[in-house]
Structure formats: structure tokens, C-alpha cells
């Protein structure tokens, strides 16, 4: 029996007047791959942000390791990592500098950052300001940040955006590795993410 990490019970989330997520329940346990499917505007990003406690729930509750959010926020945030639409990279800082200014207890060393960048197939120059990097390269820096976070739960919004075929395969590999090591990944995507070794749970959202 695997341990339940994130549990959602009958949650409703709305954006403005529009209720996008209605009475959804799901459990994300250790070693689980969880994919959100749905068209544009079906509320994938909204649900992911609600799972991060960034958006309040209209109804229902989400708990982390049995403790209710957002009260247990600090425990939760110590073990999760979110990569959203906006990449959160500072354009005036280099890739390494960006990776070193994460706001956790542990600041990665230069060597660790370089290793993580290598894992994600980053081929740009790590001493260039991020604003001159291509979208694909920036995505890879974000993935490196996720790797460095040592988080149990990854929440990735469209992780494949802007990546080439090689990059997509790489991301698939990284996710597989993380899940094999007992971590969990929640992601939304349009493109097919090929992961053969693990079953993928999907949640379909309709607009």
C-alpha cells in the first residue's frame, strides 16, 4: 500500500463567475504519475494552481499527508515544487544564478547546478543572462530547478511547451526516474508524453 500524499475531496474551483472544477476528488500517492487532460480553457492550470494552494477552493478540501491545506502549507511547500506557465526566471540573472536563488533552506552549489543543467540537456551558456536564452533553453533551466528542489511532489504545468523532440524524451526520462525513486508527478499536457514503465492516472476535464 503506497502512502497517500495529496488528497482532494469534492473540490470546486472557479475563476471569476465561472466554475471550472466541479466536485473533483482524487488521491496522489507516492510513485504516482497523474496527468490532467482537457482542452484549452477546461481549467487545467486552475486546478494545478489550486493544488498549490495558490487559488482558494470554493468547496471541498485538499490535504497533504493527512493534514489540511492551506493550514499545513509550510510542511507541504517543503516537499513540493511547482513549475507554472510563467517560468519565474530572472532575465537579468544567468542560469546558474537563477538556480542558486531558490528560496529553500538549501542553496545548490555551482557544481550541483551544472550537473542539473546537464541532466536537462541544457546546451546554452550558463554564464549568459537568461533573457537572451531561447524559450526551450529557459524551460530546461526551469526543469533543472525542479530537479534541484529535491521535492517529493512535482507539479508541472505544460512541461513540454517549447521543447523539441529530444527535449520531450528527456523530460519523459526525468519524470520516469523521479517516479521510480518514489516521487510523484502531476502534470498537464497537450502533447503525448511517452512513459512506458509506469501507469499514468488521468483526470479528464471538460469545459
Amino acid at each position: 500500500m503506497t502512502e497517500a500524499l495529496l488528497q482532494a475531496k469534492d473540490i470546486c474551483v472557479s475563476r471569476g463567475e465561472l466554475t471550472l472544477i466541479e466536485n473533483k476528488s482524487f488521491t496522489i500517492s507516492a510513485g504516482m504519475l497523474f496527468q490532467l487532460q482537457g482542452d484549452n480553457g477546461s481549467g487545467k492550470t486552475t486546478l494545478l494552481r489550486a493544488m498549490c494552494s495558490l487559488i482558494p477552493l470554493d468547496k471541498g478540501e485538499i490535504s497533504w499527508r493527512g493534514k489540511l491545506l492551506p493550514a499545513a502549507r509550510e510542511d507541504y511547500f517543503a516537499e513540493m515544487c511547482f513549475a507554472g506557465h510563467a517560468d519565474g526566471l530572472k532575465g537579468d540573472l544567468t542560469a546558474i544564478e537563477n538556480l542558486q536563488c531558490t528560496l529553500t533552506d538549501h542553496t545548490a552549489t555551482r557544481a550541483e547546478c551544472e550537473y542539473a543543467l546537464e541532466e536537462t540537456g541544457f546546451t546554452g551558456r550558463s554564464d549568459l543572462a537568461c533573457k537572451v536564452l531561447s524559450a526551450g533553453q529557459r524551460r530546461r533551466v526551469v526543469l533543472a530547478r525542479v530537479l534541484l528542489s529535491k521535492a517529493v511532489l512535482w507539479i508541472l504545468d505544460e512541461p513540454l511547451t517549447a521543447l523539441d523532440a529530444h527535449g520531450r524524451a528527456l523530460v519523459g526520462g526525468l519524470i520516469e526516474q523521479h517516479v521510480s525513486a518514489g516521487g510523484s508527478v502531476v502534470y498537464s499536457t497537450h502533447q503525448a508524453l511517452e512513459i512506458s514503465s509506469h501507469p499514468v492516472q488521468t483526470l479528464a476535464l471538460t469545459s
Binding site: F82, G84, T104, D105
Partner: peptide
């Protein structure tokens, strides 16, 4: 806010 790093700030385990 514009570049999204506010999310990293809000999701930090630090107060």
C-alpha cells in the same frame, strides 16, 4: 509578478 517568480516566493516553505 510578471515573470512568475512571485509563485516561487509564495510556495517557499519559509514564512
Amino acid at each position: 509578478f510578471d515573470d512568475g517568480s512571485i509563485e516561487q516566493l509564495l510556495l517557499s516553505p519559509q514564512p
